[in-house]
Design a protein around this nucleic acid. Structure first.
Lengths: 147, 147
DNA sequence: GTTTTTGCAAACCATTTGCAGGGTC
DNA sequence: GACCCTGCAAATGGTTTGCAAAAAC
């Protein structure tokens, strides 16, 4: 059974056709995607799922940590598939192909502690998103910043 | 002359009533605010400014680095007033009062380098946002996580 | 059988655009 | 006077909601 379905069951949510379909659309995706992308995917597959259901399921999957929401530099709201196991991590988003890679804590704790020391804030939460080019995209276009 | 106006002049943009008004609305704000907030503020002051002008001016002020856009954990798009001088910095947003404080590089460069080493990505850009409680808000509510 | 979920359509909200008139340099 | 900027209203795009029917447990 796939992780999304298992997450649904464990959390007491119902396993429905729509949710199964959406989970498989998410699995088929490479890199980040938007709700609109999934809506288009569903239509392309001729699997009719209401727009509202897509949004509702993405919310649910976000709660279950099957996906995570990221805000792209453009302000667009996107989602990335996400290992539910991993506790705390960040995403590197490739601006070439959109693929994302998770990275665990790389010393960010030291940064938040330093910031806290400097400002007196009690820091409860942070968001770190990294943007760049993944190795294949670097190889493909060594010098061209677009794609 | 206030910094926003100076920024307009230096950049060759016209200094208009609408822009002056919006600059003063921004100055009057404490903490982060949305475009909708400014629209409401303008209406409250009975200074009629078209919605479109607010959006256009906020875009312009963002380019001029008079304000900066942040994405709140809720996904809301907000703006924070911002020292145009400071080159690279991040924001700490208080979840109590919304106030924000700038912090310069606190070792984040080491983090991005480490992430790059681990993943092979060429990291071009990053976004770090910190959320927590500012000192006054900690004092006001030592134990209550809300406000 | 009860409760949750879906699909639809409409509502909603934030943001953008086209364009004619008005203001700034 | 030329060009930039504004306001308006309409278009747009993304997201949410109410509700009755359908599905899951």
């Amino acid at each position: 059974m796939d992780p999304s379905t298992r997450a649904l069951e464990r959390s007491g949510h119902r396993v429905t056709d729509a949710r199964r379909t959406i989970a498989s659309l998410v699995d088929a995706r490479v890199g980040h995607f938007t709700a609109a992308d999934l809506i288009a995917d569903a239509r392309a597959r001729r699997q009719s799922i209401g727009r509202a259901t897509i949004f509702r399921s993405l919310d649910l999957f976000t709660d279950l940590r099957v996906v995570e929401r990221v805000d792209l530099p453009t302000g667009e709201h996107a989602y990335v598939p996400c290992e539910p196991m991993r506790q705390h991590h960040h995403h590197i988003v490739c601006s070439g192909c959109g693929r994302t890679t998770d990275v665990a804590d790389c010393g960010i704790t030291a940064v938040t502690e330093e910031a806290s020391r400097r400002t007196g804030y009690r820091i409860d939460n942070h968001r770190l998103e990294l943007f760049g080019l993944c190795p294949p995209c670097q190889a493909r276009v060594p010098s061209d910043p677009r794609l």
